[in-house]
Design a protein around this nucleic acid. Structure first.
Length: 419
RNA sequence: GGAGAGGUGGCCGAGUGGUUGAAGGCGCACGCUUGGAAAGCGUGUAAAGGAGCAAUCCUUUCAUGGGUUCGAAUCCCAUUCUCUCCGCCA
């Protein structure tokens, strides 16, 4: 959410900054509403002042006048509230302004590769897809999931279930012990207010699973990512500056409707309604966002380095970035069966965009109150990492070599094969 | 599901109709003290919004919404959340 006070300072600059996003926003109306709002506030305050003075004076001859003011005040105040709501509606649907580093572009084709790392494996046979490998091992069962639940779900069994758990634990341990994130096991359900804080609502309601919850006054949703619940841990708070940066990590299931991706990645477990993801979140002083984004991204790539998986890092163009992000790096891992890189992590700085939605502030050294900067990044998407391990570590006979760093998490298992 | 208690500043906690934005404490910041630290002492310390180049000024806010009143943290009603006890389930 943008601060109207900041926007006001230079309206045309704000308009220009968002051009990169190529949106349809009625800036004229926004400006008009802001002016109306301020005008009404002033009217309101003048009346309030008069009323207050009368009350203080305790002059009975003025009490009648005070009553009149009350009814005038009601009208002005109602009007102002209406305008304010309208204003906030518009504001809450405007995405974050892209950082100057962000390349201009329309969609994913305009993203720019920054670096490549690791060795792309060469096979002297035709590498299989993860779902072929998994089904052959009898450890991925999509048909069964269809039967019990529906499409875009999967059963992971036996040693692949163990592998999935090992990946999650390995990532968590690395982020906690080496990268100094605080481990959290959070609720997997978030209220509408929380969803608003990180920007899932109001604009992206269709992507969310809403849950029926008897008697609750607010709406509840399954989290689409732990970012939502971790970031909102500081909602409505003035955090102590000395507690910053706050770095949090959690491994949670994520739930997404994947509306609008019909027919995309229908095979296998690339795109599921439910998947595990290890998520990192940082709450920082606003000036530290860029620095923290680099740090967070390297925490993510470090996992791939340790797993010895080939990957590349790209910077998303303005048109491909998420709603709340000012700058995003995607990490893409090599998938032999597709002969290309696929997203396995996305690390974003949201500047103060979410901070303002959540009303999370801190005081700087001059005791001035500022909104916090927030960042989030996958470290990594566990399901997709499982896919990457399967495909990159596959052998001619369909068995899978277990990456060295994972073996201690898997009873020293060195290879997974059908038996 | 039944009964009760309660939501006040970053935190704890006083306050039951009129300068109460709100005592006191903790925390925090600065200063004094000290070889240094701790303790002690002193001073300061809410947020949001609006006006102004600025100094500064104004308005709002004691869970939320309504009501009574010239005037509400304080009285009334509704809603909501939290806690305790009982029941039920794990």
């Amino acid at each position: 959410m943008h601060n109207i006070k900041e926007i006001r300072k230079d309206f045309s600059f704000f308009e220009k900054s968002l051009e990169k996003r190529s949106l349809n926003i009625d800036f004229k109306n926004l400006q008009k509403l802001d002016e109306q709002n301020r005008d009404l506030i002033q009217q309101k305050e003048t009346l309030e002042k008069e009323k207050k003075d009368i009350s203080k004076s305790k002059d009975e001859s003025l009490f009648k006048r005070s009553k009149e003011i009350s009814s005038d005040l009601e009208k002005v105040s109602d009007n102002q509230k209406k305008i304010k709501v309208e204003l906030e509606n518009i504001l809450s649907n405007i995405p974050n302004i892209p950082h100057p580093d962000v390349p201009n572009g329309k969609d994913e084709n305009d993203n720019i590769e920054i670096s490549k790392s690791g060795k792309i494996p060469h096979f002297d046979f035709n590498p299989k897809s993860h779902y072929e490998l998994g089904e052959k091992l009898k450890m991925l069962d999509f048909d069964l999931a269809t039967k019990t639940t529906g499409s875009r779900f999967v059963f992971v069994k036996n040693q692949l279930a163990l592998l999935e758990r090992a990946l999650s634990n390995f990532m968590l341990d690395t982020h906690v012990n080496q990268n100094h994130y605080q481990e959290i096991s959070p609720p997997l359900i978030a209220s509408d207010n929380t969803m608003f804080g990180t920007g899932q609502l109001p604009k992206f309601e269709n992507d969310q699973f809403e849950i029926k919850f008897d008697g609750a006054s607010d709406r509840k949703f399954l989290i689409p990512t732990a970012e939502v619940i971790l970031t909102n841990m500081v909602k409505d708070k003035i955090v102590d500056r000395k507690d910053l940066p706050i770095r949090l990590v959690a491994s949670t299931p994520c739930f997404r409707k994947e509306a609008g991706s019909y027919g995309k990645d229908t095979k296998g477990m690339i795109r599921q309604h439910q998947f595990y993801k290890v998520e990192m979140v940082s709450i920082v002083e606003k000036e530290k966002c860029s620095e923290e984004l680099e740090r967070m991204t390297s925490c993510a790539t470090d996992i791939l380095d340790k797993l010895e998986l080939p990957y590349r890092k790209i910077i998303l163009c303005s048109g491909d970035m998420g709603f709340s992000a000012e700058k995003t790096y995607d990490i893409e891992v090599w998938l032999p069966s597709e002969n290309k890189y696929r997203e396995i992590s996305s690390c974003s700085s949201c500047s103060t965009f979410q901070g303002q939605r959540m009303k999370t502030r801190y005081k700087n050294e001059n005791k001035e109150t500022h909104y916090v900067g927030t960042l989030n990044g996958s470290g990594l998407a566990v399901g997709r990492t499982l896919i990457a391990v399967l495909e990159n570590y596959q052998q001619k006979d369909g068995s899978i070599i277990v990456p060295k760093v994972l073996r201690s998490y898997m009873n020293n298992l060195e290879s997974i094969s059908f038996n």
